[in-house]
């Protein structure tokens, strides 16, 4: 694990990047989440919000409440003196997903492209705990790591103009979930009835950066029954600590 001192990079007068390294790795990403948690726990006055990314944390602050020099000192202290209580404890969130058919029109392509059966694709896709490195690109969109390269596939040559919310797709060696209806070029393999992002919920995203996701295969009937429960407000997503 890299315990080196982070770099501070200026983001103008009211934001600062704390950069732990320059590679995509779970170790660096864990340090990002630990610092984020430490800032939340300490309630550092003058810090407005933080944005975790792969290997850096962007800290927004009010320089009239906390001078930039003081902020740097505080951040350095939080990094150097980690407390047991500020080591982020990831959760595992189960995403019920109906594979194939109208839910995942590209699953046969993925299978053929990789010399697999559709069942094998599902087995591989549901067999991994995917770390959420960060959320970005659009509201609620998780950047997931850890997909098996054995089900990788190129993006569509012509993106679809409308992809339903909850669609699960593959692009290159990445897998992801569309949080809201949008255009996109990912190969679609399935869909979850669960709304991973809902502006009226607090917090609006069911997971946060640092958590893990697991896809669980469900039948079209189960999709319908979960969807009905969601509409009645009686569906609870499965969260486990790991």
């Amino acid at each position: 694990m890299n315990n080196g001192s982070p770099h501070f990079l200026a983001g103008g007068d009211s934001a600062i990047f704390v950069e732990f390294g320059n590679t995509v790795s779970l170790e660096l990403n864990q340090r990002v989440h630990n610092l984020k948690l430490a800032i939340q726990r300490q309630r550092v006055p003058g810090i407005i919000e933080t944005v975790p990314a792969y290997c850096s944390l962007l800290v927004y602050f009010d320089p009239l409440q906390i001078h930039p020099d003081k902020l740097r000192q505080t951040l350095r202290r939080l990094v150097d003196q980690p407390q047991e209580s500020t080591i982020s404890r990831p959760r595992l969130i189960e995403i019920p997903t109906a594979y194939g058919g109208d839910f995942g029109p590209d699953i046969e392509f993925i299978a053929k492209h990789n010399g697999l059966s559709v069942d094998e694709v599902i087995k591989i896709h549901t067999g991994t705990h995917y770390p959420i490195y960060m959320i970005g690109f659009m509201p609620g969109f998780p950047y997931l790591g850890g997909m098996s390269p054995s089900i990788a596939a190129p993006r569509l040559e012509t993106p679809r103009s409308k992809i339903p919310a909850g669609s699960v797709g593959i692009a290159g060696t990445q897998t992801g979930i569309y949080p809201v209806e949008s255009p996109g070029g990912w190969r679609l393999i399935g869909r979850t009835p669960f709304r991973i992002f809902d502006p009226s919920r607090e917090p609006p995203s069911v997971f946060q950066a640092g958590d893990y996701l697991k896809f669980v295969s469900i039948s079209p009937d189960e999709f319908a029954s979960i969807q009905a429960k969601i509409e009645q407000g009686t569906y609870a997503v499965k969260l486990n600590s790991i």
Partner: peptide, 10 residues
């Protein structure tokens, strides 16, 4: 770059 946050005015 490896994707990171974007401050106002970047």
């Amino acid at each position: 770059i490896i994707t990171d946050g974007i401050p106002l005015g970047a």
